[in-house]
């Protein structure tokens, strides 16, 4: 369509999403993820309770919410790193709920971690090669016969070198990943995820701990992913960044999706204000459960668990 030829992907997606109602669980014109009734409980505390959620294909969707809102848990569930108590979801038309993390990744949904998991005692290039798919040399017996996998290894190395150049890490290829700075590790992790040639990239706080000098290039890379046709879902706290690059924003609080909408208007949503200015600010005080100490304790516990977990992940 010649009329559309000059418009950017961002504008096209904005057009696609324009008609989507601004309410939690809104249906999207072309959903890559459709989730229903997903719950995850830890002890007595419900960390995630999402009735319906759809993610638009090809768009950058931001997942925001206050600490302990269940964003990372939802991320873990979608990517197979945690098992739900109930619920189903599909990815790209395939049922992927309760699939192992590795299978989800092979289906084309690849994630990164809030605290980067660069494989410190491997070189940057080896990190990249590890991301590649279809390397038959990764089989126990075939690995003993190099002629069977050398050709593919050369292709992988070429792909890795190209990505490293794009992410400006090519000079570091021979260094141990542990010697990189925090921001460079984020870049490496993203580049490594791209080695799997995914259809959807899930980024858990891609900006956390990144040197401001690198922020701009990271933002650029994320937008490039969309422009190449990939779907991006990311968790982020930095509202500036959310407004700047996302096409759609999903807001979570207390495990639920409380609001959805385009980034320009989402922060005016009352539910979002509530979520950020204190979970129970101005809600119905007649609801006794909200005043219950137990609820508060549980919420604190979750926040703490998250904190604790992130320490352990390091």
């Amino acid at each position: 369509m010649p009329a559309d030829a000059h418009i950017t992907p961002k504008e096209r997606i904005a057009k696609d999403l324009a008609a989507v109602p601004r309410k939690p669980g809104a249906a999207k014109p072309d959903s890559i993820i459709v989730a229903d009734n997903v719950t995850r409980r830890f002890g007595g505390m419900t960390a995630v309770d999402v009735h319906h959620l759809e993610i638009q294909r090809g768009a950058i969707t931001a997942l925001i919410g206050p600490n302990g809102a269940g964003k990372t848990t939802l991320f873990n569930l979608l990517t197979g790193f945690d098992k739900p108590n109930s619920g189903e979801w599909s990815f790209d038309g395939k049922e992927v709920s309760r699939m192992s993390a590795a299978k989800v990744a092979r289906a084309g949904m690849v994630r990164t971690f809030q605290l980067t998991k660069a494989l410190s005692r491997m070189t940057v290039l080896e990190n990249m090669r590890l991301g590649a798919t279809d390397q038959s040399g990764e089989g126990l017996l075939r690995s003993l016969v190099p002629p069977l996998w050398r050709t593919r290894e050369a292709e992988i190395t070429a792909q890795a070198t190209e990505l490293l150049e794009r992410f400006k890490l090519d000079t570091k290829a021979a260094d141990f990943a542990g010697s990189l700075s925090g921001g460079q590790r984020k870049l490496l992790e993203m580049a490594r995820a791209l080695m799997t040639k995914p259809t959807m990239v899930m980024l858990d706080e891609p900006m956390a701990g990144v040197n401001p000098a690198l922020t701009q290039s990271l933002l650029g890379h994320i937008q490039d992913l969309r422009d190449e046709g990939m779907t991006v879902l990311f968790v982020e706290h930095d509202m500036h960044m959310v407004r700047h690059i996302s096409d759609w924003v999903v807001v979570m609080a207390e495990g639920r999706v409380v609001a959805e909408g385009p980034p320009a208007t989402i922060m005016q949503d009352e539910a979002v204000v509530d979520a950020y200015l204190g979970a129970h600010h101005e809600t119905d005080l007649g609801d006794d459960s909200l005043l219950d100490d137990e609820v508060l304790v549980e919420l604190e516990a979750e926040a703490e668990a998250e904190e604790h977990r992130t320490q352990e992940d390091a």
Partner: peptide, 16 residues
């Protein structure tokens, strides 16, 4: 070696 370093990272790349 990747598993030795961080098995979750390797899992996230689709390896069993």
């Amino acid at each position: 070696k990747g598993i030795r370093e961080d098995e979750d990272a390797v899992r996230s790349l689709g390896k069993n």
